[in-house]
C-alpha cells in the first residue's frame, strides 16, 4: 500500500529538500578532498607499483593449487590446499567462538538496555539502564583490531585474545541493536497479554521477546559473517587465520597463493550468503 509519505516524496516540496541534502553531502565530500590535500596522482601506481599491479591481477586468473617455488618451505609443511583449509578453519573458529559468546551476553545486555524491559519498574532503575548503555557504547566504539592491539600488548599472542578482541565490540553492537529491536517490536501481543493480567516480566518474556527472535536471529547471522571477516583480518597481526597466510604469501611475492586465499574467503562468504538466504525464505521476515 502506498503511504502518504511515498506519494509526498514525488511532490515538488520534497525535491528542494532532496537537492539541499544531496548538495550538502557532495559539498562535504569536496571539502574533505581539499582538506586532505589529495590529488589524482595518488590513484596511479608508481614505478614498481605498475608492474606489481599487472602481475597481481594476472595471477588472479590462475590461483595456486600448490606452493609456489622460491621462498622458505619447512620440510614438514602440509599440502598447500590443506594449509588453506587450516587457515579457513582457524578463521571460522575464532568467529564462531566470539559470536556465540557475543550472542549470549548481547541478549542479556540488550534486554537490560531496552526501554521496554524497564517500562514499569520505577525511575531508579533508569540509572542501571543508562550505565549499561554507556558501557555498550564504549565497547563498540573501539574497533576489534584496536582491541586486538591492546590485548596483544597486554597479554601477548593468544587465541583467546583474538576471540576477546572480536567479542567485546560485537557484544556492544549486538546488545544495542537487540535493545532497539525489542523496543520497536509490535506492541500488540504484549498489550493483549497484559490485558489479561500477566505480570510485566511474563509479558516481556512470553510476548515481546519471542516476537523479536526472528529479527534477532537474522541480525546475529549477519554479524557472524562480519565476524568471519574480522577474524580473517586479525591474521595480519599474527593470529593464525587466513590473513596471516595471505600476508606471508604476499610478502613472498607469491601472488597466485594470495589469490587462492582471496577466493577461498569469497567462497566462505558466498556459502554464508546462500545459507542466510535459505533461512530468510523459511522465515519470510
Amino acid at each position: 500500500m502506498a503511504k502518504p509519505a511515498d506519494l509526498a516524496a514525488l511532490g515538488g516540496q520534497e525535491s528542494t529538500r532532496r537537492v539541499r541534502v544531496l548538495t550538502g553531502i557532495l559539498a562535504a565530500g569536496i571539502l574533505a578532498f581539499l582538506g586532505l590535500g589529495l590529488d589524482g596522482s595518488g590513484l596511479l601506481p608508481k614505478g614498481d607499483g605498475a608492474s606489481l599491479v599487472r602481475e597481481f591481477f594476472v595471477a588472479a586468473l590462475q590461483p595456486a593449487w600448490d606452493y609456489e617455488p622460491g621462498g622458505f618451505l619447512p620440510a614438514d609443511a602440509p599440502p598447500f590446499l590443506l594449509k588453506v583449509a587450516k587457515g579457513l578453519w582457524g578463521t571460522l573458529v575464532y568467529a564462531i567462538a566470539a559470536i556465540s559468546l557475543s550472542f549470549v551476553f548481547g541478549l542479556l545486555l540488550g534486554v537490560l538496555a531496552s526501554e521496554s524491559f524497564w517500562a514499569t519498574r520505577g525511575k531508579a532503575w533508569g540509572v542501571v539502564r543508562w550505565s549499561i548503555r554507556i558501557l555498550l557504547t564504549g565497547m563498540r566504539s573501539i574497533h576489534e583490531l584496536l582491541w586486538a592491539l591492546l590485548l596483544l600488548a597486554a597479554l601477548g599472542l593468544s587465541p583467546a585474545a583474538a576471540v576477546l578482541a572480536i567479542f567485546i565490540p560485537y557484544t556492544g553492537t549486538l546488545a544495542k541493536v537487540f535493545s532497539e529491536m525489542l523496543d520497536e517490536s509490535d506492541p500488540r501481543p504484549s498489550y493483549a497479554l497484559s490485558q489479561i493480567g500477566a505480570s510485566q516480566s511474563r509479558v516481556f518474556l512470553f510476548a515481546r521477546l519471542p516476537r523479536t527472535l526472528p529479527d534477532i536471529a537474522a541480525y546475529t547471522f549477519y554479524r557472524f559473517e562480519c565476524a568471519v571477516r574480522s577474524s580473517a583480518v586479525l591474521g595480519f597481526f599474527g593470529f593464525t587465520t587466513v590473513g596471516l597466510y595471505l600476508k606471508q604469501s604476499f610478502e613472498n611475492l607469491h601472488y597466485h597463493e594470495v589469490w587462492t586465499y582471496l577466493y577461498s574467503l569469497i567462497l566462505v562468504v558466498l556459502v554464508l550468503e546462500a545459507w542466510s538466504a535459505q533461512l530468510r525464505r523459511r522465515f519470510v521476515v
Partner: peptide, 15 residues
C-alpha cells in the same frame, strides 16, 4: 566479501 583492511593492504602495495 573482501574485508576493507585487505583491500587497503593490497592497494597500498600498488599505489
Amino acid at each position: 566479501a573482501i574485508p576493507e583492511y585487505i583491500w587497503a593492504y593490497l592497494l597500498l602495495a600498488m599505489l
